[in-house]
Design a protein around this nucleic acid. Structure first.
Length: 921
RNA sequence: GCCCGGGUGGCGAAACUGGUAGACGCAAGGGACUUAAAAUCCCUCGGCCUUGUGCCGUGCCGGUUCGAGUCCGGCCCCGGGCACCA
């Protein structure tokens, strides 16, 4: 920009600014204990091929926070890396007949260039890819050290198994209970896997949530529920004809007398014992293993059970209880067995209905308890009140107890017909425990079983240990050796890393390191005899659990070095809400592992967290006929058309009435707004948007269109609106410079020199400065920042002042606006800042503007005037007007007088600076 | 099924601590400028009617309050997660 008129050309503006930042190494962060640090971290991308809008949104939010903190004078670190191991590389390798490594590295090159074109203030000197040995060697070393500490163990666990392809499937690869490639019904299969003892930290991970005021409540609540601390009783049922009892855990020992059956996992030893003795039963039990392992599938599939022909003994009543192997009980979780209380657990209730098992009510509401007590007075204390109430109702004095009998009858009907009574209540039908409340019955029943040596009170967690074994190739090799003599032996640190070969032929049927008989051959580090390497690789959550720490210490010989404690914990972490539980829990867990290894000094990895919403877009499709399977007919299928190739049609009120293809003009159907995805072909390519409008416009739109936490609907007309705003700003600055010369003169303005319109503009400027600073720093409300700056530009455009003071005010306003816009549109700000007469670069810690309190002060305020809470007008009063004065003015207002006519005024409520409400009746 | 969110004009949204619902932007309609187009500028824009400082209106039903988009109870719908997608 110069004093002669030029159009805003984002291409050259952005290229210049990016070249300047690169040349001056503007964003390379250097540890400096004399300065306050700010570590701003965005979740690292998986290099899937090309940047998508979700990345753009995530990294723009992080960049805005980073650049704002930098303007506050902080020493900001904003790094980037690549979460480079994972399943998609294997799928792409099969599709493209290439090695996963090559595909991954090519994607990284492409996506890095795309990120750079967005102008993010990233310290690229700290970049890494997690698939490189110099990254994963640290992970392997950590693992063998954790093994020595007893934090790692190996046991059997269930996986999805495709019986046709003979492979383990990820949950994502199981669709409607079938393998995604073979279509075969998936089965559960047990295989040996490695686990990290995250449950050893369950209490701490739970308690630590209270020390995170900067995390969203939704995330903390989800994590609390996921960890799921509960207090209960673990106890044993003796089994007739078996030496081994069945152990169960329950949070509801008060319902013990309502147990009418037991459910065990199909893999439970007792089920296996029964199966071994009866081939037909073995087949039926094996059939229960059908279906995937995911909780969602398990909980929504039909509850099925097989009676195994064995009976457990009720520990109090001695009653024989049938034992079922059931598809909803998993061997991995808890004891692999649960007690069945159909009266008070909904799943057990449904199971009992399906298998005609008795439903016994042993807990009732207070109302029913009272009704039973009333009936008891009439039938005598020696009788079972419920039996009497129901069985001998006719014999009871109907006048006195009819209502009570009805209450009990309705309760019983509801449990019999509508479902279990799952609330806590009072115990009935339970002999010596009758009349106790939840806690009383818990203590009495737990106490009795403990005294008999049959059970113990236990704190139980829903959280399970972290299974880190994956039967895949493209991951970090697990550094263990299996020796026939010595068992499982960790690879000595001196022999690390265990390298993953990258130059492999990959068919997808089996991992190359499993297929290659040579790769696994090694010698036992302990006895020197022949041994096999572990051929499983780590869960890729392992890499993403500690990458944030590695950024602080590039090149360190260990995971991190002393630099980590300068930067950590992360001051602001930004990523998608879909990571609320798994990633963010592993992240918090791993930080504690680092702490307990003496590598970091803090307890939590990040003090503030922002979870951004998804990016969504309209979908369009046309229906086509494709040949149907089988007898030669056709079926309708949908062909999805990208929004970039669609023109929507509207009626004269702006409502969408239809859509047609820009390619062939064909009419299209509108499929609704959904998450951007390949399957719906509604992804909008960020690169195309940057090429067309410039990165600043794309950044501006993605920050304006919705609050960071909400879904963001991509809408190209909206992008054009953002482009218009920047062009208007550019023109306004040019016009100001055309009058004011080169803009170097002092722009300081005192309110006294300005006319009323100038004072009003200056007030709005400083109110905007105050609001925008608050929105950036405290509220993280970026859309309202942009709206406020648009309002200010509208006001500036309308301002007609023409004297020297007015021109100075224009420059003051424009300079402040450039600074306020800088975090969001940094290229644009870089150029306009210099044009406005500032020789220094904006990026060099220009302080964020500070509001002038004198400009904001008001002499009068406008109050809303209400009668009985309904708006009846407004009232202009002096800012320091007393309550009495305001009341008097309000009651004499013509509109108020009219609306209270015929009523008497009861009171007048005055909320200073806001409203006056006259209450009349 | 379970856990966590969300629902405000034709659309994205704003209303921050219970205090003037719809700022800002998009779309649409009308106008100006222009040979024309683009660009730009101006006006209108929740619904209803009796056009009034009128009535109704924040998913639905009920409650608390002088006052509810905001708080409470119940329901409906949509989205995220559910441990091997990342």
């Amino acid at each position: 920009m110069s004093s002669e008129s030029t159009a805003y050309d984002p291409g050259s503006v952005e290229a210049d600014a990016q070249a300047f930042w690169e040349r001056t190494r503007a964003f390379e962060a250097v540890e400096d204990p004399s300065r306050e640090k700010f570590y701003c971290l965005s979740m690292l991308p998986y290099p899937s091929g090309a940047l998508h809008m979700g990345h753009v949104r995530n990294y723009t939010i992080g960049d805005v926070i980073s650049r704002y903190q930098r303007m506050l004078g902080k020493n900001v670190l904003q790094p980037m890396a690549w979460d480079a191991f994972g399943l998609p590389a294997e799928n792409a390798a099969i599709r493209n007949n290439t090695a996963p490594a090559r595909w991954t590295y090519a994607n990284i090159e492409h996506m890095r260039a795309q990120l750079k074109s967005m102008g993010y203030a990233i310290d690229w000197s700290r970049e890494f890819a997690t698939c490189r040995p110099d990254y994963y060697v640290h992970e392997q070393r950590m693992f063998v050290r954790l093994f020595e500490k007893g934090m790692v163990y190996r046991r059997n666990a269930v996986v999805n198994f495709d019986p046709v392809d003979q492979t383990v499937l990820a949950n994502e690869q199981v669709i409607d209970g079938r393998g995604w490639r073979s279509g075969a019904l998936v089965e559960k299969r047990e295989i040996a896997q490695w686990f990290l003892r995250i449950t050893a930290y369950a209490d701490e991970l739970l308690a630590g949530l209270d020390s995170l005021p900067g995390w969203p409540d939704a995330v903390k609540t989800m994590q609390r529920n996921w960890i799921g601390r509960s207090e209960g009783l673990e106890f044993a049922f003796d089994v007739e004809g078996s030496a081994e009892p069945v152990r169960v855990f329950t949070t509801r020992p008060d319902t013990l007398m309502g147990v009418t059956f037991l459910s065990i996992a199909p893999e439970h030893p007792l089920a296996q014992q029964a199966a071994a003795a009866d081939p037909e039963l073995a087949v039926r039990i094996a059939a229960l293993k059908q279906g995937g392992v995911s909780e969602a599938e398990r909980e929504t599939q039909e509850k099925r059970g097989v009676e195994i022909g064995m009976f457990a003994t009720h520990p109090v009543s001695g009653e024989a209880l049938p034992i079922f192997a059931a598809n909803f009980v998993l061997m991995n979780y808890g004891t692999g067995a649960v007690m069945g209380v159909p009266g008070h657990d909904q799943r057990d209730w449904e199971f009992a209905q399906a298998y005609a098992l008795p439903i016994r009510m042993v807990i009732v509401s207070a109302e029913v308890r009272d009704a039973l007590a009333e009936i008891r007075q009439h039938v005598g204390a020696h009788d079972d009140p419920m039996q009497s109430a129901l069985g001998e109702a006719g014999a009871i004095d109907v006048v006195d107890t009819g209502a009570a009998v009805q209450v009990v009858q309705e309760f019983e009907d509801s449990v019999a017909n509508d479902g279990a009574f799952t609330e806590q209540g009072w115990v009935v039908n339970s002999g010596e425990f009758d009349g106790l409340d939840y806690q009383g019955a818990f203590d009495a029943i737990a106490g009795r079983l403990e005294k008999e040596g049959r059970g113990t009170r236990q704190v139980n967690f829903r959280l399970r240990d972290w299974g880190v074994s994956r039967q895949r190739y493209w991951g970090c090799p697990i550094p263990m050796v299996h020796c026939a003599v010595c068992g499982d032996v960790p690879v000595p640190e001196s022999q690390l890393p265990v390298l993953l070969p990258e130059d492999v032929a990959f068919s997808g049927v089996q991992s190359p390191i499993k297929a290659d008989p040579e790769w696994r051959k090694t010698t036992c580090p302990r006895c020197g005899g022949p041994a096999d390497r572990e051929t499983d690789t780590f869960d890729t959550f392992m890499e993403s659990s500690w990458y944030y720490a590695r950024y602080t210490s590039p090149g360190a010989a260990e995971m991190v070095d002393a630099r980590a404690n300068y930067w950590l914990p992360v001051d602001h972490y930004i990523g998608g809400i879909e990571h609320a539980i798994l990633h963010l829990l592993y992240f918090r867990f791993y930080h504690r592992l680092l702490r307990d290894a003496g590598m970091v000094a803090s307890d939590e990895p990040a003090t503030n967290l922002l979870c951004q919403g998804m990016v969504i877009a309209e979908t369009f499709f046309r229906e086509v006929e494709i040949p149907g399977s089988g007898s030669g007919g056709t079926v309708m299928d949908k062909v999805w058309v990208n929004p970039a190739d669609v023109e929507v049609e509207r009626d004269e009120r702006g409502r969408v009435t239809g859509a047609k293809s820009l390619i062939d003009g064909a009419a299209l159907r509108i499929g609704g707004i959904e998450k951007m995805s390949k399957s719906r072909n509604n992804g909008v390519d960020p690169q195309a948007m940057v090429d067309k409008y410039g990165a600043d416009t794309v950044r501006l739109f993605s920050m304006f269109a919705a609050p960071a936490e909400y879904s963001l609907e991509w809408n190209e007309a909206g992008v054009e609106g953002m482009s218009r705003f920047l062009r208007r700003f550019w023109r306004e600055a040019e016009a100001a410079l055309a009058v004011a010369g080169d803009g170097t003169q002092d722009a300081a303005v005192s309110g006294a020199q300005l006319d009323a319109a100038g004072q009003e503009l200056r007030r709005q400027l400083h109110e905007t400065i105050a609001k925008v600073g608050d929105d950036y720093g405290r509220r993280l409300s970026f859309n309202t920042i942009i709206a406020a700056l648009m309002e200010l530009l509208n006001a500036l455009t309308r301002y007609r002042g023409a004297d020297a003071a007015a021109h100075a005010l224009r420059l003051e306003t424009l300079r402040a606006m450039v600074l306020m816009l800088n975090p969001i549109t940094p290229h644009f700000a870089h150029r306009t800042w210099q044009a406005l007469g500032n020789p220094e670069s904006l990026v060099d810690a220009q302080p964020f503007p500070v509001a002038d309190p004198a400009a904001i002060a008001r002499s009068s305020v406008t109050l809303a005037l209400q009668v009985n809470g309904k708006l009846r007008g407004t009232l202009e009063v002096a800012a320091d007007a007393s309550r009495e004065v305001i009341e008097t003015l309000a009651l004499s207002d013509a509109s108020v007088v009219r609306h209270v006519a015929g009523l008497s005024v009861r009171k007048v409520i005055v909320v200073p600076g806001k409203i006056v409400n006259v209450v009349a009746s």
